[in-house]
């Protein structure tokens, strides 16, 4: 067997909000190319965990080690802020549930996609624009919309634009917070297909927070089930969903509405 090193390694992560526990003692490894789903109901701590792991919410206890492109291990809360911010806008991507949180609504689609490139020093307008056009194609937005602001886009298009804006810098790790939440079912299916294709074509690792077990089944290899800030069950996605062991997971799975 080839021994693989985890891309990100989370140890005993605890986030508190004053006296309240956001998430408690969470540990996991994410390997390159792996997609981890985090499921649980609202308030279960899954978004807290995502924010902490993605460097946006400093944990009270615990460590997050990230394996950089240089194959060095870095503790993301011990590195300097410039280093962390650079990592976050080059090596990492964060797809928000509400595209308005992840897009610049006041500038064109092309500028939204080009921002990360300009942030790492691209200074050739023609190259930035052609890269933006090619990414619009990848996320199935017509090229003639490149100069339109996202305010003129539908919700599904905005979400696809947000994905393009995030993936243009060639990140290795993508964080997604309810990426299909708030979309029509048909739009959701298209987005899921697109996401799955991009993740596997680009060999991305991803951590996806969702309350939708169907989304988790389609996108993630592995699943962590959270309740009350704790991980109550984790394992292969289909194993957790088809043969749930923990009472809470059984309740979640048995609560799915059948069409």
């Amino acid at each position: 067997m080839t021994t693989r090193m985890p891309l990100i390694s989370v140890e005993d992560l605890t986030v508190t909000y004053g006296d309240r526990i956001g998430c408690n003692g969470v540990s996991f490894d994410l390997f390159p190319g792996e997609v981890l789903g985090i499921v649980g109901e609202s308030g279960s701590g899954k978004s807290t965990l995502l924010n902490a792991v993605s460097g946006q919410l400093e944990p009270a206890v615990g460590q997050i080690h990230y394996r950089t492109r240089l194959n060095e291990t870095a503790d993301i809360y011990r590195m300097s802020e410039p280093e962390r911010r650079f990592l976050m806008r080059t090596d990492w991507a964060f797809v928000h549930q509400n595209p308005r949180d992840g897009l610049r609504m006041g500038v064109s689609a092309g500028a939204n996609i080009g921002e990360r490139l300009m942030g790492v020093g691209w200074r050739h307008y023609g190259e930035i624009r052609s890269t933006a056009l090619s990414w619009l194609g990848k996320v199935e937005i017509f090229e003639d919309r490149v100069d339109d602001p996202p305010t003129t886009f539908s919700g599904g298009m905005q979400q696809r634009l947000q994905i393009a804006r995030n993936l243009v810098s060639g990140p290795r790790l993508v964080f997604m917070d309810e990426p299909t939440g708030g979309l029509d079912v048909s739009v959701q299916a298209r987005l899921l297909d697109l996401l799955r294709g991009l993740v596997s074509d680009l060999g991305l690792s991803a951590i996806i927070v969702t309350h939708d077990l169907a989304v988790a089944r389609l996108l993630s290899h592995r699943l962590m089930v959270m309740q009350g800030g704790e991980v109550v069950e984790s394992g292969l996605t289909d194993q957790v969903l088809d043969d749930p062991q923990h009472p809470y997971t059984q309740l979640l799975v048995s609560s799915i509405l059948q069409v």
Binding site: E81, V107, G110, L117, M118, R123, Y125, R129, D147
Partner: peptide, 18 residues
């Protein structure tokens, strides 16, 4: 503080595109 000035070019990009 961190010399993150990519955003300034977003404005200039937007000018050229519009």
């Amino acid at each position: 503080a961190l010399e993150e000035y990519g955003l300034m070019h977003v404005k200039l990009y937007e000018d050229i595109s519009q």
